Amino acid sequence: MLALGCDHGGYELMQEVKKHLDEQGIAYKDLGCYSTESVNYPDYAHKVGEAIQSGECEQGILICGTGIGISIAANKMKGIRAALCSDCYSAQMTREHNNANVLAMGGRVLGTGLALKIVDTFLATPFSDEDRHKARIAMLED
């Protein structure tokens, strides 16, 4: 299951992501926010991170205005590897090489079509499971 979180700057794009996931039958837990009213992005990054840390969700998607703040907040949490992606190649590589468990995007940066392709790429790409990548990821946990 996916954990979804956004702030007010990512709310509109998140609605498009949810429709896209619904069309594909992909299960998710919507952890907010629920309007364009101003909120604090770290709150939603933490909710998504906690859902992954607890094992309730395997991966997450976070969206704020630029994707920067919400990815920084998520990456401060143990075991969370959030990658800010604005293109499909980055989404593919962060899954293959970094085993990223959270995709971050900027709602004020990306158009809907590209954002949905990035989501699809992130979700469809497995971790390479190569020893060199495992070793590098382990270094992040120390």
Rank of each mutant, 00 (worst) to 15 (best):
M1T: 13
L2Q: 05
L2N: 06
L2W: 04
L2I: 05
G5M: 07
G5F: 08
G10K: 02
E12N: 13
E12L: 13
L13A: 03
Q15V: 00
Q15T: 08
V17Q: 09
K18H: 10
K19F: 02
K19E: 14
H20N: 12
D22P: 01
D22I: 05
A27Y: 05
A27E: 15
K29C: 10
D30M: 10
L31P: 10
L31E: 11
Y34L: 09
S38A: 15
S38K: 14
H46I: 15
E50H: 07
E50A: 12
A51D: 07
S54A: 14
E58M: 00
Q59Y: 13
L62H: 00
G65D: 05
G65N: 03
T66N: 00
G67C: 07
G67H: 01
I68H: 09
S71C: 08
K76H: 06
M77V: 10
K78M: 11
K78R: 12
I80V: 14
C85M: 02
S86F: 12
S86M: 05
D87I: 04
Y89M: 13
S90H: 00
T94Q: 00
R95G: 01
R95Q: 03
E96W: 00
N98M: 00
N101K: 04
L103F: 07
A104V: 03
G106Q: 01
G106I: 04
G107E: 06
G113W: 01
G113R: 13
L114N: 03
A115F: 11
K117C: 03
K117Q: 15
I118G: 04
D120I: 06
D120S: 13
A124C: 04
A124H: 09
A124P: 04
A124V: 03
T125P: 07
P126V: 02
P126T: 12
S128D: 15
D129S: 13
D129G: 11
D131C: 01
D131A: 15
D131F: 09
R132P: 05
R132L: 10
R132H: 13
H133D: 13
R136D: 06
I137H: 10
I137D: 09
A138H: 12
A138N: 13
M139E: 15
L140P: 09
E141Q: 15
D142S: 14
